[in-house]
Simulated scan of single mutants.
Amino acid sequence: MQGARQTVGPRGAASLSPPPLHCVQAFEATARHLSLTRAAGELRLSAAALTQSIAALEARLGVKLVRQLAPAVQLTDAGEHYFHAVQAFAHRLRDGLYERLPVGRAQLHVTASQALARLWLAPRLGLFAQRHPRIDVILTSTAKFQSLKDGGVDIGLRYGGSVDEDMLAVPLWTDEHIAAAAPALAARADGLSPGEIARLLPLVEHPVASWRQWLVTIDPALASVDPLLSCNDLHLAIEAACQGLGLVIAPSRLLGAKIANGQLRRVGTHAAPGKAYQAVLWRERAERAPLQAFVHWLAEQAAEKNVS
């Protein structure tokens, strides 16, 4: 009887056979979360089982993927490359079903700032779902910049900033900063000069656009201001303005809906230049059909005339 074939090689050499899927899944979840605990919770496995699966994967590949698992997961350079390769393969599997089968679905994980997500993107996602009902969008809004390199994120909407060489930035629009307030407070600003507004009326400050920078574009002598309320997030500042707590400076497109429904009223006619909004994605994944569909739709929405 002929015995089973067995490949014998040097110690640590990679096997030519594909690694077990459960080992790859354990590594992908751990690398994506950079946390053994969160990965174990997602896969409903014990941390010990994940550790064993990752060790088995490293043995099969003949390379060290994880430098340490605790207290925080750290990947080796080889681990970083393998993680991105695994994610790209998973995307190709899902996208292949989406493109070739009428029942196939694709998934996109999108991140944006809280203000951009709540005031501009989220109200429009229903339109995208109507046009592309088989693409599921997972939208995460965060007060902090979330790097696409953290894993699991397909596209990020950014306000200004530079991108790495392996990223692709698609310009959407360049906004201008305008002043706005609740109608009753805006009425008090009628007839006042910018200097009088800054001196006599309550102001709401936030990191995206400061009153000092906005006023300096009118008159350098107006650099000294004393905001009544400072918020660490643009969305909070806009909501405070809607409640009549003060005037706010913000990108005009994000104020459009609030102005249109009467919650806010534009104050004055001055507008200061802002930065460009852009969609950022992995350059190597830019050809994915679901990503192209979403970016094309974003460009269409961005081309709409702003309401201010």
Rank of each mutant, 00 (worst) to 15 (best):
L101D: 05
L93G: 00
A106R: 11
L121I: 11
P102F: 08
L108Q: 09
V103E: 07
V103P: 00
V103L: 13
V110T: 03
L108W: 13
R100Y: 01
V110H: 04
E99V: 15
A112P: 02
E99F: 05
A106G: 07
P102Q: 05
G96P: 04
Y98N: 07
Y98L: 13
A90T: 05
T111K: 08
V110F: 09
L108E: 09
G104V: 08
L101R: 15
R94E: 02
W120V: 10
R105H: 11
A106V: 11
H109N: 09
L121A: 04
A117S: 13
V103D: 06
L121P: 00
R100T: 14
R105C: 07
L97T: 07
A117E: 03
A112G: 05
F89H: 15
G104W: 03
P102K: 12
A115C: 14
Q114A: 08
E99M: 14
R105Q: 12
H91I: 07
A115Q: 04
V110M: 09
R100G: 01
R118Y: 01
S113Y: 06
R118M: 03
L97V: 12
L108M: 11
Q114H: 05
T111W: 13
L93I: 13
D95S: 11
R100L: 09
A112N: 02
F89V: 07
L97C: 10
H91D: 05
S113R: 10
A115M: 06
R105P: 00
H109D: 05
W120Y: 03
R92D: 01
T111M: 06
G104T: 09
L101P: 01
A106Q: 13
H91W: 10
A90P: 00
L97A: 13
T111F: 10
A117R: 11
S113H: 10
Q114F: 01
A106L: 12
V103C: 13
E99I: 13
H91R: 15
L101M: 13
T111G: 11
L93N: 01
A117V: 06
H109V: 15
D95L: 07
Q107K: 15
A90H: 05
D95H: 14
F89M: 11
R105F: 09
R94M: 07
L101I: 10
V110Q: 01
V103H: 11
G96R: 14
R94N: 05
R100A: 08
Y98F: 15
L108A: 14
Q114R: 15
P102A: 06
L116S: 02
A112T: 04
A117T: 02
W120S: 01
A106P: 07
H109Y: 10
L121D: 00
W120P: 01
H109M: 11
P102M: 09
T111R: 05
